[in-house]
Nucleic acid binder design. Structure first.
Lengths: 157, 157
DNA sequence: TCAGTATGATTGACACATCAAACACAGGAG
DNA sequence: CTCCTGTGTTTGATGTGTCAATCATACTGA
């Protein structure tokens, strides 16, 4: 009896490779711009963004991890590097002294404020300006479909 | 006088974030599968693929770099790790002894052969099966538009 | 009370990526 | 032949990401 097709055909594979390679290049180019414009990595930016959106620029470490969608270990390493550069501080949590409060330091606040506009400008230049409005919508739809499918296959994030 | 809009609007920004974050997750998930199914990283796979497509499984280092689209330094580091695992060998080039010939080693040939099917299956499961045919076409179009735009802005790759 | 376990976070080891500097040979000018 | 410069490749330093193991504190049940 006939089985369902196992492997992508030529056109599907080409679409896959173009898609994944291009998004990779895009990520790299954008990271390079962010770095040279502002001295921040995308990770730095994500962390500072999350902290900036809170009331007092402070957040539990695990909440921050959930917010940016990282594993705790990854966050911990990254925070170590950011702390060395004085972008954030770590304090013991008052309510649960296992936990850590991550606090946005002055240098971090400044760096983020000055990074926002250049970063958004780069997003516009490299992504928004490259696509038609219909393509932007399609991109959002594709992202949604991919993510939903991943979740269905058992990947939480 | 009125200026052209500088920054992405709310919807564009959301599309951007969904798009870039989802492709990132997809990359990570696929890399994890490849790793656990075959013991190869995406980089390993790309290098082995390029070598496998040559006549004799050998190639100049700089040609290989162009083929996989990497900087030479990155390739050199990666080849060092692959050589340790006996996936490839390095030989001096006959014609120009500055250059290196990269040779596909038996273990590399085997590893690649056994990785192909699982890898393509994963691509189908995670990408092709998630999208409608129209979305796959749209994805290819988006990739093409993004890449062309990048080139126009002066990024070779 | 006090084991035992669960939870929040960190650590260490290693693979991967990027940049700048170094190294090694080739090829040409004198 | 010898210096000079260009090209192919490697190296070192540092930042980033993942996994497994660990540490420290909180909680729970006998």
């Amino acid at each position: 009896m006939p089985r369902t097709r196992q492997l992508p055909d030529r056109a599907e594979l080409r679409a896959w490779r173009d898609f994944i390679e291009t998004t990779e290049v895009l990520r790299t180019v954008l990271a390079g711009r962010l770095q040279s414009d502002t001295g921040l990595s995308p990770g730095d930016y994500a962390v500072l963004l999350a902290l900036s959106e809170t009331e007092h620029g402070r957040m539990r470490s695990s909440e921050l991890a959930a917010q940016v969608g990282w594993e705790r270990s990854r966050l911990s390493h990254h925070l170590g590097r950011m702390e060395r550069r004085q972008l954030i501080r770590r304090e013991k949590a008052a309510t649960d002294s296992r936990g850590a409060q991550i606090v946005l330091a002055p240098a971090g606040r400044t760096a983020f404020r000055e990074a926002t506009a250049p970063h958004l400008r780069a997003v516009r230049e490299l992504f928004v300006d490259a696509l038609t409005p219909a393509q932007i919508e399609a991109a959002a739809g594709i992202a949604a479909a991919l993510r939903e499918h991943l979740v269905r296959l058992g990947h939480r994030e």
